[in-house]
Simulated assay, not measured.
Amino acid sequence: MSLKDQIGEDIKAAMKSKDKIRLETVRSIKKLLLEKEVSVRPAGQEALTEEQEMEVLVQLAKQRRDSIEQYRQAKREDLASQEAQELAIIEEYLPQQMSDEEVSAIIDQIIAQAGATTAKDMGKVMGPAMQQLKGKTDGKKVQEMVKAKLNS
C-alpha cells in the first residue's frame, strides 16, 4: 500500500474513532504531500517518489521536535505535549529509527573512509553521513556525534 493510500485509510479511521489529534495530523501530512506533488508536476513528474515522501515526513518530524524544544523552554508543557503526540503519529510513517550504537558505527566508518581527524573535517563527514542516515535518525543527533568524535 502506498503512503498516499495509507494516509487516506488512516484519515477514515481517525474520523470514525473521533481521534481529533490523529485526524488533524494525518490531514496535515496529506496536505503537505499534495503540495509537494503539485510542485514537482512542472518537471514532468506525476507522483512523488518514496524518497520525496520521506523528505516531507522528515521535515514535519523536525518541525515538531523544534517546536517541542521551544515550548518546553517557554514552560508551555501543554503545547509541548500536543506536539509530542503529533510527532509520535508522524513517526509511524517514517522508517524504523536507528539506535545510537548503529548511528555511531556508521559515523565511525565514514570518518575512517574520509580520513577525517579534526573538527575542520566535519564537512567531509556530515555530507555522506546525512545521505546515508536520512530519515533513519535525527540530523541534530548525527551532527552532535560527529562533532564529539572529531573533537576527541
Score class of each variant (00 low, 15 high):
S2P: 15
L3M: 07
D5W: 01
I7N: 06
E9L: 15
A13E: 12
A14S: 11
M15H: 09
S17P: 09
K18V: 08
K20N: 07
I21G: 09
I21V: 15
R22A: 14
L23D: 05
L23W: 05
T25I: 13
V26K: 00
K31V: 14
L32H: 14
L34A: 12
V38N: 07
V40P: 04
V40D: 06
V40S: 02
P42W: 03
P42S: 03
G44D: 04
Q45V: 09
A47M: 13
A47C: 11
A47L: 11
T49G: 06
E50I: 02
Q52K: 05
L57I: 04
A61T: 00
R65F: 02
S67M: 13
E69L: 08
Q70Y: 12
Y71M: 09
R72Y: 00
R72A: 03
R72F: 03
Q73K: 15
A74G: 07
K75S: 09
L79Y: 09
L79S: 08
A80L: 10
S81K: 13
Q82P: 13
E83G: 07
E83P: 06
A84R: 01
Q85P: 09
E86R: 09
E92V: 08
E92F: 02
Y93L: 10
L94K: 04
L94F: 09
Q97A: 06
M98N: 11
E101R: 07
E102W: 04
Q109R: 14
A112K: 03
Q113A: 14
Q113C: 07
A114H: 04
G115V: 08
A116T: 00
A116V: 03
D121S: 04
M122V: 15
M126D: 02
G127C: 00
A129S: 03
Q131I: 12
Q132M: 10
L133A: 05
K136C: 05
D138W: 02
G139C: 10
K141G: 13
E144T: 14
E144L: 06
L150K: 01
L150P: 00
